[in-house]
Amino acid sequence: MSGLTCSDGSAAAGEQLAGSAPEAVAWVALEQNGPWGAKAFTDSHLDPDLGRRVEAAAAAFGVRPSLVRRPGRHADAAARAGGRLGPGADPRHVLVAYTHPTGPWLLEGTLDDPARLLDLDWEALAVGDAEAVRRSLPVLARTDRPQLLVCTNGTRDVCCATKGRPVALGAAAAHPGQVWEVTHTSGHRFAPTTVLLPAGTLHGRLDVAAACEVLQAAERGETVLPGSRGRSTWAGPAQVAELAVRDVAGVLGLDALRVVTHDATGERRWSTLVAHDDGRTWRVETESRDAEVERAESCGKALKPLTYFTHLVETSLVRR
């Protein structure tokens, strides 16, 4: 399997998708055209000092920051002008999403200066206070249109470019204004990978039709189970628990389930209580194990044993 790309090797190994989403209760995506380096916030045409400050502010409150651009040609106006653009001459779109299923929301707007992103109330974002976030950055307004981010950063991993870009282009043609290329979602080996905002659900190994279905389902208030990596709101084992409940109970409602408690019960073992908004609950016991099969986490890296989760679901413990 060593001659395969990381995504082909992962698929050939049958690596589990569930539980592989990065953990974040909120996402901020800033438009940045032009080329991206492997660490795009400090290795692109964005001012690197600004990039470091945005990353630090986001990390302090558990927010996931990303750079995005529209699929297709993405000329960088600032680079063409040698960085000598005046205020308002290089507008940047920004997406700000809170993912918790009890009240997810998405704000969007246009910044006349990317440095204005530092005015964002990151603490309010982390607790889901949309009005406080809007007061801190008044250009933001609520939107009900879900947005799909497709990882295409080939300088971080070639699979993201070769497999992600065709999906981004195809999905954008079918859903204009709702699809972006994004710098990083984690999990190169699951390429093509996507993030749906505001839900914060991630999917992997998608083609164009599957990516479009993620958006179409979101517009119906539903999620798509095939290819789901989990909801970033929760830790990895809790993502597995939520998806296990969806599979057992046939729950597709995007925001119908929430993780009530999630506790470690031993080395690489967890107990998670998942609740439905109709009052049903499930207790899920989850364990992480290493398989004998090896795969690379990213192209060019050494092979490592893949990790997978097992789970046991006890259904309908409580009816409120």
Rank of each mutant, 00 (worst) to 15 (best):
T310Y: 07
S271K: 05
L252K: 03
G34Y: 01
A124N: 01
A244I: 02
G253F: 00
R142E: 11
R70T: 15
D8W: 15
H311G: 04
G279H: 00
G236Y: 08
S136H: 02
T223S: 13
T162P: 00
T143N: 12
T233W: 07
S228C: 15
D157E: 12
T307K: 14
L137R: 03
A124E: 01
T183N: 15
A218S: 09
P192A: 15
P71T: 04
G236Q: 14
G83W: 04
H188G: 13
L312M: 07
G200K: 03
T193F: 14
P138W: 05
W234Q: 01
L254R: 11
D119C: 06
L140S: 06
A168K: 07
L169K: 11
V25N: 01
A296I: 04
R319S: 15
N153A: 09
G204L: 08
A58T: 02
V224F: 12
P166F: 00
V94E: 11
G14R: 11
P305A: 11
D113N: 12
D129M: 02
A218M: 05
A168G: 10
W180I: 01
L254V: 03
S44E: 02
D247I: 10
V54I: 15
G109S: 06
G279Y: 02
A256V: 08
A115R: 10
V260T: 07
R64H: 00
E285D: 15
W180S: 08
P22V: 11
L4M: 15
F309A: 13
W282G: 06
V182T: 15
T155Q: 06
D129F: 02
A296N: 09
N153L: 10
D113Q: 06
P48S: 01
A191V: 13
R258L: 02
R229N: 05
K39R: 10
S186C: 13
E15C: 11
T155N: 09
G227W: 05
V240R: 06
N153Q: 13
G300P: 04
V167P: 10
G300A: 12
T233P: 00
G266D: 01
L117A: 10
R268Y: 13
P35A: 04
T265V: 14
G164Y: 07
A89W: 05
V293H: 11
P87S: 07
G221F: 12
D277Q: 09
G34F: 04
G88M: 09
R258Q: 04
V25R: 10
V284D: 01
Q147T: 13
G34N: 03
A21M: 06
P198Y: 08
V68H: 01
D49R: 15
D119R: 14
L149F: 09
S271Q: 06
T281D: 03
E31D: 11
P101M: 08
H184R: 12
P114N: 05
R80V: 10
R295V: 13
E131A: 14
E23A: 13
Q239E: 12
H203R: 09
P305D: 14
A81M: 08
V318L: 10
A241H: 01
G279I: 02
G177T: 15
G221N: 08
P87G: 03
A171P: 09
L67V: 00
D90L: 00
A238K: 04
A24L: 00
A174Y: 14
T155V: 03
T265F: 00
L148V: 06
V259I: 03
G128C: 02
K304A: 14
A60T: 04
W180D: 09
A218Y: 05
S316H: 15
G62T: 02
P48F: 01
D129K: 04
E314K: 05
